[in-house]
C-alpha cells in the first residue's frame, strides 16, 4: 500500500510540476458564483462574464473561467472539479452559504491558490487573502439620512422589508439608526419577500390604513416597483418620496430622469464581483499587493453620478 501511494504521489507530483511550468505562461483565475435565480444574482453573472471578457482582452497572460452553480453542494463540486482539472492560481468566490463552502475553499487555499471572497464571508476569515463586500447597513443609513434631510427631520414613514435574513436585518438596522433622534416616525413595517406582487398588496394596505404618509422605503428595488404601482392607483399625492435600494437599472433610469418621487438610490451593486476580479487580476499583471478587506460604500446615487451605476445591458 505504502509503496503504491508513494509512486502515485511521485507521478502526481511530476504532473503537477509540469502543470506549474505551463501555468507560468498563463495565470488562471477561477470565478465561482451562484447561478442567476433572481435579479441581483443575474447581475452578478452578467458582471462576472463581462469582467472575464475584458480581462482576457486586456491581459493575454490571464485566463478567467466563470462557473455558476445553482446550490451550495453544486458550488463545492464546481470548484473541486476546476482544482482537479486544469488547476487555478486564484479563486474568486461568492459563496452560496458560509458553512458549506468554508472547508472546500480551505483545501484549495492549501494548494497555494490565492483566495478572494466576495459579499458573503466564510466562517473562517483567515482563509481569504482578499475580502470584498458591500455595506448593507449603509444602504439603510444613507437612505434614512436623505429622508431626515429632505423632510426636515419630521414625518410619517412606512417601510417594506424583504425576507428574514442578515441582509434584511442590517438594512433595517441602518435605517432605524439613521432616523434615531429625529421626529421621523415609522408608522408600520411589513415583510414583502423582496417580491413586487407582495409589495403591491402591502402598499395598498398601508394606504388604506394610514391617511397621511410622507415617505415610503422599500429596502429593495423589486419591491419599489410594486409600491409605485399601488401609489399610482390610489391617486394619493401627499407621499413625497418612495425610495428603494440595490441599484436596479429601471430605478437608476428614474434617478437619471430626475423623478421627483424617486430622486435617489442607494447601491448594493452586483458589479462588486467585477471589482473583485479586477483586483485579483492586478497582482498577476503588475506587482500590486492587494491582501486585505475592502468594503464598498453605499453612497447616495443622484442624477449627477447615476451614470456610474447604470448598466443598460445588464438584466438587473
Amino acid at each position: 500500500m505504502k509503496s503504491s501511494a508513494t509512486v502515485l504521489a511521485a507521478v502526481a507530483g511530476s504532473l503537477l510540476m509540469g502543470g506549474v511550468a505551463v501555468a507560468q505562461e498563463k495565470k488562471v483565475i477561477a470565478v465561482s458564483i451562484p447561478a442567476a435565480d433572481h435579479g441581483w444574482t443575474a447581475g452578478v453573472v452578467y458582471h462576472a462574464n463581462a469582467a472575464a471578457e475584458e480581462i482576457k482582452a486586456a491581459f493575454p497572460n490571464i485566463e478567467v473561467i466563470v462557473k455558476t452553480s445553482p446550490s451550495a453542494s453544486a458550488q463545492v463540486s464546481a470548484i473541486e472539479d476546476i482544482a482537479a482539472g486544469r488547476g487555478m492560481d486564484a479563486l474568486v468566490i461568492l459563496p452560496h452559504s458560509s458553512e458549506e463552502l468554508t472547508s472546500p475553499v480551505k483545501q484549495i487555499k492549501d494548494n497555494g491558490t490565492f483566495i478572494t471572497v466576495v459579499d458573503r464571508g466564510l466562517t473562517d476569515p483567515t482563509i481569504q487573502d482578499l475580502y470584498l463586500a458591500g455595506d448593507n447597513i449603509a444602504v439603510g443609513h444613507t437612505t434614512a439620512k436623505f429622508l431626515v434631510d429632505k423632510l426636515g427631520g419630521k414625518g410619517n414613514l412606512v417601510v417594506l422589508r424583504g425576507i428574514p435574513t442578515v441582509i434584511d436585518d442590517e438594512r433595517i438596522k441602518g435605517f432605524e439608526d439613521g432616523i434615531k433622534g429625529t421626529d421621523l416616525k415609522i408608522l408600520d413595517i411589513q415583510y414583502a419577500n423582496w417580491n413586487s406582487d407582495d409589495a403591491f398588496k402591502v402598499m395598498q394596505d398601508f394606504l388604506a390604513k394610514y391617511p397621511q404618509i410622507d415617505a415610503v422605503w422599500a429596502n429593495d428595488d423589486d419591491m419599489l416597483l410594486g409600491v409605485l404601482e399601488a401609489m399610482k392607483q390610489s391617486g394619493r399625492t401627499e407621499i413625497k418620496y418612495a425610495l428603494g435600494g440595490n441599484g436596479m437599472k429601471e430605478i437608476i433610469e428614474k434617478v437619471m430622469a430626475g423623478d421627483p418621487v424617486t430622486p435617489i438610490e442607494t447601491p448594493y451593486p452586483p458589479s462588486m464581483i467585477k471589482t473583485a476580479i479586477y483586483m485579483t487580476a492586478a497582482q498577476f499583471n503588475g506587482q500590486a499587493p492587494i491582501r486585505g478587506t475592502v468594503k464598498l460604500d453605499a453612497p447616495l446615487i443622484t442624477q449627477e453620478n447615476a451614470k456610474e451605476y447604470y448598466f443598460p445591458e445588464s438584466p438587473f
Binding site: 447561478a35 453573472v45 445588464s314 438584466p315
Partner: peptide, 11 residues
C-alpha cells in the same frame, strides 16, 4: 422563465 429572463425580469 428564469432562462427567458436571464435571471432578471421581463418587462
Amino acid at each position: 422563465v428564469i432562462w427567458l429572463a436571464e435571471g432578471g425580469s421581463i418587462a
